[in-house]
Each structure stands twice: as C-alpha cells, then as structure tokens.
C-alpha cells in the first residue's frame, strides 16, 4: 500500500535572476515499509524533493498525497500539525537541542504532541534502548559522539510515531564506523517496526543498504 503518492510535482524558484526548476515533473510512489534512497548529483533536486515531501516547502504545481491526504491543501498551521504527527525528520547536523539531555530531546517532540510526562518518559526510555544508548540518557548532545547524537535524532524522529522518516544526508558527518552502526540500526528498525525511511544521500554505503534507489537529475526521476 502506498504511503506517499507524488503526481507531476514541480517546484520553481523565482527569487533568482533566472527561474530555477528544482523539481520538474516528478511522479513517485513510496510504499509503507520501504527503505528508499534518493540519490543524484548536487543540485539535482534531492533536498527540494525532501522539503516538499516533509511539508516544509510548497510545490509550484502537482500534488503530494500522504496517507491519502493531499498536503497541498493544508494551511501552514495544519502543516505544522501534520509534520508533528506524521513525519519524522533526521538532519545531517543532528540538530538536537543542546540544553536538553538525550532523553529530554526524545521526549520533547512528545510534549509538543501533548503526551503526559510519565508516558513521554516511558516511551523515550524504550527508544533510548532501541537505539542502543542505554546509560547515556542523561548525557547532553555535547557529551555524545556524532554517531550517538544521530541515534538520538533517529529516536526523536521515531518518538512522534510518524508515518515515515525523512533523513537528509544523515551520514554526511559520520565516520565509517558510525555510519555502519547507524545504517544497521535504521535497517533493523525498518525490518522490525516496518518503519518507512526515505534518505537523500551521496553515500555509497547508504545506497548499498537501501532496498530501493530513486535517482533524480535536473529535477526529474531518471530511474
């Protein structure tokens, strides 16, 4: 069953002297439980596509259906709520809240969702274990390695119980060992939890782990 349906998607940036067609007529369908890597050269439109999928940017043309809902029709306030409840984000630079501990970073998104403190703590502890950071729950991001921080970011993305996780170049700042560990962990979550992962990446190691690779160039899916 498709979790994401993209129809004739276009995004043109007009704030430059020459309009830039970052996404130029993409049609794509992503099924629940897929482990998909979106690959392509720099400037090919990977990040723009991910931003559009995440409801962070609005398409110039075309439709994006997530779980059957066309997110193009949502207001900006509804989009914030939609992102909070349906989409998990993992960023290249981890982007954890530096003043919160690992556990609090994970629990924070659940607070935004309105969950009770006890429930937040319980879920966050489970996720800490799931991403292999038991004993590090009270460490602040600055006290964790890059790989560990990215695991916390994955746990935070999972904490909102999203329909899918968007990860933009998640291994770009990690060494090979940390990359391997992170990819194994995400692959494991994909298998055991049936969690849908969509990556944008240049990294060969990510491509090797992916079960589906979508290559885009000049804003179009090439294969």
């Amino acid at each position: 069953m498709s979790i994401i349906e993209i129809h004739n998607l276009h995004k043109t940036y007009t704030d430059t002297s020459v309009p830039v067609k970052a996404v130029n007529g993409i049609n794509l369908s992503i099924k629940e439980g897929e482990f998909t890597a979106i690959v392509g050269p720099s400037g090919s439109g990977k990040t723009t596509l991910l931003n559009l999928l995440g409801g962070l940017d609005t398409p110039t043309e075309g439709d994006i259906f997530i779980g059957g809902m066309n997110i193009k029709n949502l207001t900006s306030r509804q989009l914030i709520d939609f992102r909070l409840h349906h989409i998990g984000f993992v960023f290249q630079s981890y982007n954890l809240i530096p003043v919160l501990t690992a556990l609090e970073n994970i629990a924070f998104i659940m607070e935004l969702q309105g969950l009770k403190k006890l429930q937040r703590h319980e879920v966050a502890m489970k996720l800490i274990k799931k991403v292999g950071l038991e004993g590090k729950e009270n460490f602040r991001p600055g006290e964790l390695s890059g790989g560990q921080q990215q695991r916390v970011a994955v746990a935070r993305a999972l904490a909102s119980r999203p329909k899918f996780i968007l990860a933009d170049e998640p291994t770009a700042n990690l060494d090979s060992h940390a990359t391997e560990e992170l990819l194994n962990m995400m692959a494991d979550l994909n298998k055991t939890e049936n969690m849908t992962f969509i990556f944008s990446t240049h990294d060969k190691r990510v491509m090797d782990k992916a079960r589906r690779i979508v290559t885009i160039d000049d804003g179009k899916v090439v294969y």
Binding site: R77, R83, F89, N95, P98
Partner: peptide, 16 residues
C-alpha cells in the same frame, strides 16, 4: 537560527 528553524520544522508552533 538553525536550531529554531529545526524546531519549527519538526512541528513547534510559532506560538510556542
């Protein structure tokens, strides 16, 4: 700036 942008991206409302 980046941190606040991230918070808004993951679903923090402008009010918060």
């Amino acid at each position: 700036k980046r941190e606040i942008g991230m918070l808004m991206a993951i679903g923090m409302t402008k009010g918060r």
